[in-house]
Design a protein around this nucleic acid. Structure first.
Ligand SMILES: [Zn+2]
Ligand SMILES: [Zn+2]
Ligand SMILES: [Zn+2]
Ligand SMILES: [Zn+2]
Lengths: 134, 134
DNA sequence: TTGACAAATGTAATAACATCACATATCGAA
DNA sequence: TTCGATATGTGATGTTATTACATTTGTCAA
């Protein structure tokens, strides 16, 4: 299966919940939103989330235990450059960006130290432009 | 109070547990290690951890829900440069480093986007040099 | 010294996040 | 059609973190 194709029923429901949200959602928030669609247990959500993470359609924000739909599904190639997230602690907005210099510096460190990197998390918490002017 | 001074009893116990560990510990692991010292409830650990984080003596690893004693308490100035952690998924070893170029690039992004950064997490998961040769 | 306030501690209960174990169903290829 | 891989349903359990409230300890000024 390729990334943007033929999701199963549960995967579609979970992805759509994230896609229509204006910010990150926790697994249990998703569960509550999908009760009327037949969801009864956390595992139904977590299994779908795992697949969607595999497909690169969503991201997990480790610092807030939440999940967000990928903001740039067509433009950035997950798996190559590292992705950074700026998370507003006021409104929950998440901005996603990729920086080749950061990616390069991390690679230099890992190569220099014989560290075989598998996954890298870069999360910036703070207050977004909108919320600081308001 | 300054950072490396006069911890309270509980703060000392928690800090020493982290300092003598060879890797990160979860709050509940610390709790279990301190049962004989009178610890009975998670909050006793979490409260001490919060203070030690304030003092910059320990770090929280968001991607693994664990805490680690600062590896460079005298050399790096927490609060200025951002700190990155390389976490071995085999042995648990954590290497801590700080990179001015990464710090600068993140600052460029946040300044350019009007984002007021408060805390930044950079965590690299993978396998350390020792574990990949073994 | 004592009264008052801040900081630290003790404890139980609860909330929030995530996985295990096992049964059943669905789908596609041999 | 039969087999294996994938997906699903469900309850129980495991793990991480916080709320609420009572008590103790330390500090300092009146
Ligand atoms: Zn993305
Ligand atoms: Zn905001
Ligand atoms: Zn440190
Ligand atoms: Zn290792």
């Amino acid at each position: 299966m390729t990334a943007t194709q033929e999701l199963t029923k549960n995967q579609s429901l979970v992805f759509n919940a994230l896609a229509r949200a204006d910010g990150p959602l926790s697994a249990y928030t998703i569960l509550d939103q999908l009760r009327n669609d037949g969801f009864r247990a956390p595992l139904q959500v977590y299994r779908a989330l795992d697949k969607l993470l595999d497909y690169g359609m969503i991201h997990r924000l480790e610092s807030i235990n939440a999940f967000v739909a990928c903001a740039h599904p067509h433009t950035h190639s997950h798996g190559h450059g590292m992705i950074a997230f700026a998370i507003c602690e006021k409104c929950g907005q998440v901005s996603e960006f990729s920086d080749d210099v950061i990616t390069g510096r991390v690679r230099e460190w890992t190569n220099g130290n014989g560290f075989k990197q598998s996954k890298t998390t870069i999360e910036i918490r703070g207050v977004c432009a909108n919320c600081s002017t308001a």
